[in-house]
């Protein structure tokens, strides 16, 4: 398929869906709602934000209540997450497992098409400092998506389907030339990624490592890292009283926020910044790998990019691993 045909395909999608895709704005690429094909960035540059809010909105209403009556409204807008890079697809694959039994997530997912994209590894891919997740050869087999598009060196595009839903959409759009890839589970046949195991080991028993004290000295506990992180999915349930009843909302939160661990008597388990930092890393490198044998961090380095004091997750992992060997 050439660029013209891709444009036709995407324009068809644009006609009756809300489409989110990477878009160049000034010097950076951002995931944004788009209106036409020309807005889409096809360079494979990692967007500054992730696709997280498409699948887990920063705020959603779970129900409205008045008296004994509860009204539940599920998301129904037809949405497409278009040109999702492999790292964000990894984070999405994690969400698919974490929110497997969450009715609000699943209803939204029913109305959402996930279209991955790669233009191959960017020439300067070293800048991604891939330290945890891998670009493996058979990467697509272990990712969840409906359609995946790969840009070849000659400028043409090849298509893959990853679900029946994706196959149907391709057929409806007269795309006949595609390969179907069956999801082969989170863990490759060869076993869990050794890097995932090594990073887990480095973090798990590291609470007394000096690194955490040093980071706590500089960390502002602003929570920007967790907002931008594609695998952070902590949330609060909050009640919002309205004139005609109450809305219960699910809202993003962060383990860096002061009320995250507050219990009665104003006691906070995560009162010290050191504990917050350790909790955040533990979630990514120990708890998620233990629960799902999968990445809790996809190496996107967005946390480093937004950190006001330059906390570098890749460098910290290296240091913990080194200290652990001592």
């Amino acid at each position: 398929m050439d660029l013209g045909e891709l444009q036709k395909f995407v324009e068809n999608l644009l006609s009756d869906n809300i489409v989110y895709a990477p878009m160049k704005k000034e010097a950076k690429v951002f995931v944004s709602p788009i209106n036409n094909f020309a807005e889409i960035d096809w360079t494979s540059e990692l967007p500054a934000n992730s696709f997280k809010s498409v699948f887990l909105p920063p705020e959603e209403i779970l129900w409205k209540n008045a008296g004994k009556k509860f009204k539940t409204a599920f998301a129904s807008k037809k949405t497409i997450a278009l040109a999702m890079n492999v790292l964000d697809l990894q984070a999405f694959t994690l969400f698919e497992h974490v929110f497997e039994k969450d009715i609000y997530y699943q209803r939204r997912r029913q109305n959402t098409f996930v279209v991955g994209f790669t233009a191959g590894l960017p020439d300067d891919f070293r800048k991604y400092k891939i330290f945890h997740a891998d670009y493996e050869e058979n990467v697509l087999e272990h990712l969840i998506f409906d359609i995946f598009i790969e840009k070849q060196k000659n400028g043409n595009f090849i298509f893959f389907s990853g679900s029946e839903k994706g196959q149907k959409l391709l057929e409806e759009n007269n795309v006949k030339d595609y390969e179907h890839i069956e999801f082969a589970g989170l863990v490759p046949e060869s076993g869990m990624n050794p890097r995932l195991i090594a990073n887990r080991k480095a973090v798990e028993l590291s609470f007394n490592d000096k690194l955490w004290d040093e980071l706590a000295e500089i960390c502002l506990a602003c929570g920007k890292c967790s907002v931008v992180c594609p695998t952070c999915f902590c949330f609060n349930l909050e009640d919002d009283p309205q004139l005609n009843g109450v809305e219960r909302k699910r809202q993003w939160t962060s383990c860096f926020y002061p009320e995250f661990s507050k219990i009665c008597g104003n006691k906070k388990e995560l009162a010290e910044v050191k504990k917050k930092l350790y909790f955040w890393y533990y979630h990514k490198f120990v708890r998620i790998p233990e629960e799902l044998s999968y990445y809790g961090c996809v190496s996107c380095m967005r946390c480093f990019n937004v950190c006001p004091v330059g906390i570098n997750i890749a460098a910290n992992l290296q240091r913990l691993a080194k200290n652990q060997q001592k």
């Binding site: 974490v98 929110f99 039994k101 969450d102 999915f233 902590c234 949330f235 609060n236 349930l237 383990c255 995250f260 661990s261 507050k262 219990i263 388990e269 909790f279 533990y282 979630h283 120990v286 708890r287 233990e290 629960e291």
Partner: peptide, 19 residues
């Protein structure tokens, strides 16, 4: 153990203790 809880089904992360 007593921890802050929101979802009750092991997703929201508030009440995580170890793994």
């Amino acid at each position: 153990l007593e921890k802050r809880m929101h979802c009750g089904v092991g997703i929201c992360q508030h009440c995580a203790v170890g793994t």
